[in-house]
Design a protein around this nucleic acid. Sequence first.
DNA 1: CTGAAAGCGCTTACAG
DNA 2: CTGAAAGCGCTTACAG
Lengths: 348, 348
Amino acid sequence: MSKQSKPDMPETDQATRRIARMSDVARLAGVTTMTVSRALRTPEAVSPQTLEKIEEAVRSTGFIPNYAARSLVSQRSQIIVALFPTMMNSVFSGTIEELSRQFLANGYHLLLGETSFDVEVEEKLLSGFIGWRPAGLVLTGSEHTDYSRKMLENSAAPVVELWNLPDNPFDVAVGFSNREAAYRMTMSLYEWGYRRIAFMNLHYPLNDRSVDRSAGYRQAMAELGVPVTEDMEIWVPFGVESGRAAIDRLTTASPRIDALFCSSDTLALGALMGATRAGLRVPEDLAIAGFGDVELASSVVPALTTVGVPRAAIGRESARIIMERLNGSYDGPPVVDCGFTIVRRESA
Amino acid sequence: MSKQSKPDMPETDQATRRIARMSDVARLAGVTTMTVSRALRTPEAVSPQTLEKIEEAVRSTGFIPNYAARSLVSQRSQIIVALFPTMMNSVFSGTIEELSRQFLANGYHLLLGETSFDVEVEEKLLSGFIGWRPAGLVLTGSEHTDYSRKMLENSAAPVVELWNLPDNPFDVAVGFSNREAAYRMTMSLYEWGYRRIAFMNLHYPLNDRSVDRSAGYRQAMAELGVPVTEDMEIWVPFGVESGRAAIDRLTTASPRIDALFCSSDTLALGALMGATRAGLRVPEDLAIAGFGDVELASSVVPALTTVGVPRAAIGRESARIIMERLNGSYDGPPVVDCGFTIVRRESA
DNA sequence: CTGAAAGCGCTTACAG
DNA sequence: CTGAAAGCGCTTACAG
């Protein structure tokens, strides 16, 4: 912990452990820091002999450049901020994994945050992370507080909003139509013979995806002429337990519900477990459909019918777009639709 | 994108969007940057009137200090590096969530990386992240390459190794005994009447947790006098599908296996689904036990018997220890045991 | 192909 | 309670 001494010639163990600076490498190689800097970033601009000496010096000192210094002087940081509602959901994990892979391969580091579906938490995270002057930002959804918008504007960095197709993206949006996905799944359930279709939605009234999915569900039900009674749209918090608990309320509904469409696979898996435990046969007594197509969806018994979301594609596209925006080459549309699929399995 | 112009008096839209610096705030408030810096970090050392003017200037400019500059000059960064084998596992997510919460509350930001259970990937991630001169590091396990160890030594930052109780921790370790946990679960299965107990382990021969769990299992079986035939210890890659696929091999084993202990709940859930689909009754035909106690473990039917791992406690303790090491106040042991529990449910 | 000069935006360590 | 000076470790924008 003690960093009082800063001798030019390290002698004590403590001092030896001090991390090397570029000037240490330069001294060892007999050049200036300028040449070391060049050797690291544009080796072709340095003579082979010099390069070799520098590489040897880098190796022997274990030198790794200080990114804080690099960011400060070059006026651009290697940090990308990415905020997701939760990391406990393998739908998002898939996107995070892909984002991380793409950015890492291009020398950027991902600063991740979890908003808990709350725009106020998002604002708080942003106001902290923006201090790193991120090169780009990836946000989930297009609901942000006014202050968040102000920070994003001031930062002047590319911003990609994920997971929906907003009418007015802040910058660029990458996702799919949640409204259409919910509409299509509801219609599909009807086609498969289910009539009294309930919808279990995440209870975040400000969440654009919740709102859009609700709208899609209600539009389909209206077109089908099936009235949506009060007990048919269920608003719950995120979690397996929510899905499981909702089953009790559903089975006492009258007239009887014959299908339950859940706004998330996590809820659907919970509902599936709850139904199984309650002795209901799925899909004969109650059909269940999810949203997301997580890994377990295809393994669970009965296998879960769900909305397939292109999580890797969303991650890949958004990373590509940010990097293209950074070098000024992006000429795609402001809203990129990665589509969705209706995946029919056994549960409906 | 264009950052050519850097006028002192912003005039164009582009220039207005330039993010405020401390000198902008200082000018507005009629003080020097030194006073602004103090107002932000030690407001009690600034006169009330001055503080008010500065606060107003901060508000109107939306100023957020540049962390790269702060890190560089103060010689300590607010970045904590945390590396986990996978983020697709809610056992780790629980620890990550808690780590993130604790560090954020103390002004540190978490740079997360995914090693895919591979020390070479860990080394690659480290060599990138170390450029941020992290204030502390959290690693999973205590297997690291020599070069990783060298980097950690050079960085001179506190390092916490998670998830096991190594004999020689690099710095401090926080976890539980994987060997004892596997031993105890195997013994418990025997007590509950199972005899031919198979063990499905993650196939990462360098992974200290895999090795320790295997040792615990084998020690128990040896003490119980049950021979471990070749088909009884199954090494598989991580994933639900692995667990599911292993069921086929198991059911053809002879003599018959009556219990399957899985080194991860993810594998156990896969096995449970595979068994159900194969028409096996769990636990009558095949008992199944997991490791981790993820959220789904208690909801699934039949509910999963598993090893409960104190994921939040591990996150909380490791964050506390790093912060105490940073201010020099840590006086605990080099190895902190957070314990584990045997959670008996329906599947065994 | 290499280097001398300047400076990124802050904080440290003083002085007053 | 406030400020002038110096400098963290790099890269930019030149000059040679």
